[in-house]
Amino acid sequence: MSLEQLVHELHSLSRVDKLRVVQLLVNDLAADEAAGVLTQAQYEVWSPADSGDAARVLLQMLEEDRGPRE
């Protein structure tokens, strides 16, 4: 069955069955991730947890920049 056919079939499912499919796929992805399948990339966490002044500047920038972009 092609992906297109599968998607067509999925759309015809009941709401309950759609939720079951979503849960199944999430569980599969989580299991893959736990096994290190998705990525072996390394990230350092440098959290700016006490940057209130920077936050105020960014909020002011957003206020000044109101309107559609890109």
Partner: peptide, 21 residues
């Protein structure tokens, strides 16, 4: 033109504000 100081490890580096989509 908007410059500020971050905290933690990032305090050692200059930072400037930008807006993206």
């Amino acid at each position: 033109r908007h410059q500020f100081q971050l905290s933690g490890n990032l305090a050692n580096f200059e930072a400037r504000g930008v807006i993206l989509s």
